[in-house]
């Protein structure tokens, strides 16, 4: 089985910073940050909010490619968001779900998985997405399949949905937060850097001068 870190590295090689990326809490965000991409992305978007936040960005900027790097437990908390995506049909949105079948962030750490998510049992997220009207949906299990599906969907109109089945654990300790020298940003700092990035890309003003001062 492929590891989350390998797929995130592969994904980083496939998109530039003109693609807007939204990442959830858990280990996806630190892996993405360690590749130097955190400050131009919306990161550590909390439980159930990753795909909907990406949908909001996609609807606000319909000409700009937007990708959610979601995860199974995070998405399942707000599964109805797939119905909203299916009805809104944003052509510029790709949702990638790193599906490890367990609540790793709530797990014991080390090489032990957390408690199982529904995808460890009967739930098939690809079928759910298709049932919600996201016709371009697939499940991948290798880096080669992942690269093939993502590059195909990035070249086509969306919405599209890729379930990437990954190792149950990431193989490194993630508990205990971020120490000195970690790549990540404070959540407010991240909001500002992400919005400033969009302002530069789009040549627009979003943040009001003196707001909050």
């Amino acid at each position: 089985m492929v590891k989350r870190a390998e797929l995130i590295k592969a994904f980083a090689s496939m998109v530039g910073e003109d693609t807007l990326v939204v990442t959830p809490i858990g280990s996806t965000t630190p892996y993405w940050e360690e590749l130097g991409r955190g400050s131009t992305s919306l990161t550590s978007v909390s439980l159930g909010m990753c795909t909907p936040a990406a949908l909001g960005v996609a609807l606000a900027l319909p000409h700009r490619r937007v990708v959610a790097l979601d995860s199974d437990g995070n998405l399942i908390l707000n599964l109805c968001s797939l119905g909203t995506v299916g009805n809104q049909k944003p052509r510029n949105l790709l949702i990638v779900v790193f599906d490890n079948g367990n609540y790793l962030s709530g797990g014991p750490g080390g090489n032990k998985p957390g408690m199982p998510t529904a995808t460890a049992g009967a739930m098939n997220l690809e079928v759910v997405a298709k049932g919600c009207g996201i016709e371009k949906a697939c499940t991948v299990r290798t880096e080669e399949e992942f690269r093939s599906a993502v590059s195909k969907y990035l070249a086509e109109d969306g919405p599209a949905f890729v379930v990437a089945k990954i190792e149950p654990v990431d193989g490194r300790e993630r508990k205990g937060g971020r120490g000195p020298g970690a790549a990540g940003q404070d959540t407010r700092e991240n909001k500002y850097s992400f919005v400033r990035h969009i302002e530069r890309l789009e040549n627009i003003t979003i943040l009001k001068k003196g707001g909050g001062g």
Binding site: V45, M49, A53, G56, L59, I206
Partner: peptide, 16 residues
């Protein structure tokens, strides 16, 4: 409505 707040957050980041 939790989903709704998240969509609104993304839309604001995109200039809406």
């Amino acid at each position: 409505e939790g989903e709704g707040a998240a969509i609104a957050m993304g839309a604001w980041c995109g200039g809406k």
